[in-house]
């Protein structure tokens, strides 16, 4: 196997641009990640659409079957944790472009910690909820656990990506010349954060309206 497997611009071709910097178009990998996120976002749209479809075609109270309206305090803390995790991610992305590896590692580690804290809180929330209803209780239970669980799965995938980036950073594989992976992981992570807002609104806030 001779593949280097690296998407690295080798040298600019064509006439040099006037300001002397190499042209900075989007890379194929950038497009790949953007399209991947687009299709993932559509899956979430389908899930949330299904939630509202069933909610508005259900006669009687919502949530049905005597299930209480969801508690808000814990989800709001989770929201703060997850949203604030985007900050260090941005910071890490800026750092790697400037070749500041220590700052990169610190940013990735903070994001990891905040994401893991989110998941930990979600686990304790599940522990409470499972006492009240499970996903086979009724369709509300199915929607609740599948939608939040599917998001949780995305947080896990995001964390795996972050671990991957952290290992690469520790191995010295990321730097000012190899920074794209951090940007792509950051895209995915911001996406996971943004989707949570829609879930917060749908699952937790909308029953209170």
């Amino acid at each position: 196997m001779t593949a280097t497997g690296e998407w690295v611009p080798i040298r600019p071709v064509g006439p040099a641009p006037p300001h002397g910097k190499p042209p900075s178009g989007r890379t194929p990998a950038w497009w790949g990640m953007v399209l991947f996120i687009t299709t993932e976002a559509t899956i979430f749209a389908c899930l949330l659409g299904s939630y509202f479809y069933i909610r508005f075609s259900t006669a009687g109270p919502w949530p049905p079957g005597g299930i209480k309206d969801p508690e808000l305090s814990k989800p709001l803390i989770m929201t703060v944790l997850l949203l604030s995790s985007s900050g260090p991610m941005v910071w890490a992305d800026l750092a790697v472009r400037r070749g500041r590896t220590a700052q990169l590692r610190a940013g990735l580690a903070s994001t990891l910690a905040l994401g893991a804290a989110f998941l930990g809180l979600q686990a304790t929330e599940y522990a409470t909820k499972l006492g009240e209803f499970v996903w086979s209780t009724n369709v509300y239970g199915s929607l609740f656990y599948v939608i939040t669980g599917f998001h949780g799965l995305h947080v896990i995938v995001g964390l795996v990506m972050l671990v991957f980036a952290t290992i690469a950073a520790l191995a010295g594989k990321l730097g000012s010349r190899h920074h794209e992976r951090v940007r792509l992981v950051a895209f995915y992570w911001h996406f996971v954060d943004a989707v949570w807002i829609t879930i917060l609104f749908t699952i937790y806030l909308s029953p209170h309206l």
């Binding site: 593949a3 280097t4 080798i10 071709v13 064509g14 190499p22």
Partner: peptide, 16 residues
């Protein structure tokens, strides 16, 4: 993307 102006040469992965 739009005008197909040359940007960079890219080394591609080989068989794996």
């Amino acid at each position: 993307e739009l005008d197909a102006e040359p940007e960079v040469a890219l080394e591609m992965p080989e068989h794996t």
